[in-house]
């Protein structure tokens, strides 16, 4: 399935608006971690749910992952998932100044905090430009040291397609990286598309 739900102009606009949200998220997380964050061009795909796990696997590779989910609601409704390779979770503790092995609860708290900063800045930045009101639920751990393929219960997704927006953050001097994926069901893709059209018409 292609991105046929979006015209080329709409897709380009969504990518650029996401890019601006990503820039804000990158700056926020750079301030938290005290490191320079390298950004890449966001990727926009419209996928059948069963193609989401392979798309995730392409980003993170074969390493097991820990993931945090955070729902958003308001003018746009969906879910953001922040995916970390397992080795990167330990790197994060080190970056935050913990010298030694930290207990699981502390590590999880760190992941939730960093995810919250990323999602809030990235999606908040996107919503702001689209004049959309967006609220966030508390982030929660969705899987620890899991296979990427088992991360999402795609059988339970009752949408014929989903918008998959991929944003990657990596540090220049450290091996840490993480990936933010925004998932929207089909009815919300149409809402987003209308918001993009209004934005484009206002230019």
């Amino acid at each position: 399935m292609s991105t046929a739900l979006f015209s080329e102009d709409q897709r380009d606009a969504l990518q650029e608006l996401t890019n601006i949200g990503m820039g804000q998220a990158g700056a926020s997380v750079a301030a938290v971690l005290g490191e320079f964050v390298m950004l890449s061009v966001p990727r926009i795909l419209v996928l059948k749910p069963n193609l989401i796990p392979p798309a995730l696997a392409r980003i993170v590779g074969s390493e097991k992952v820990t993931a945090v989910r955070q729902g958003f609601h308001g003018d746009l409704r969906g879910e953001a998932v922040v995916v970390y390779g397992v080795s990167h979770c330990r790197e994060l503790a080190d970056l935050m100044g913990y010298d030694d092995v930290i207990d699981e609860a502390t590590e999880q708290e760190l992941l939730l905090d960093v995810s919250n900063v990323l999602v809030g800045a990235c999606l908040g930045g996107l919503a702001e430009q689209l004049n959309a009101e967006m609220g966030f639920s508390a982030p929660s751990l969705m899987a620890t040291e899991a296979e990427v393929s088992s991360l999402l219960d795609v059988e339970r997704m009752d949408s014929p397609c989903a918008l998959f927006v991929e944003v990657n953050f990596s540090l220049e001097k450290r091996s840490f990286s993480c990936h933010l994926v925004m998932l929207l069901p089909e009815d919300q893709i149409l809402v987003l598309r209308d918001a993009i059209d209004r934005f484009l018409a206002s230019l």
Partner: peptide, 9 residues
């Protein structure tokens, strides 16, 4: 002209 607003950038 960029969205990468890190002071370091």
């Amino acid at each position: 002209v960029s969205a990468d607003i890190q002071p370091e950038a």
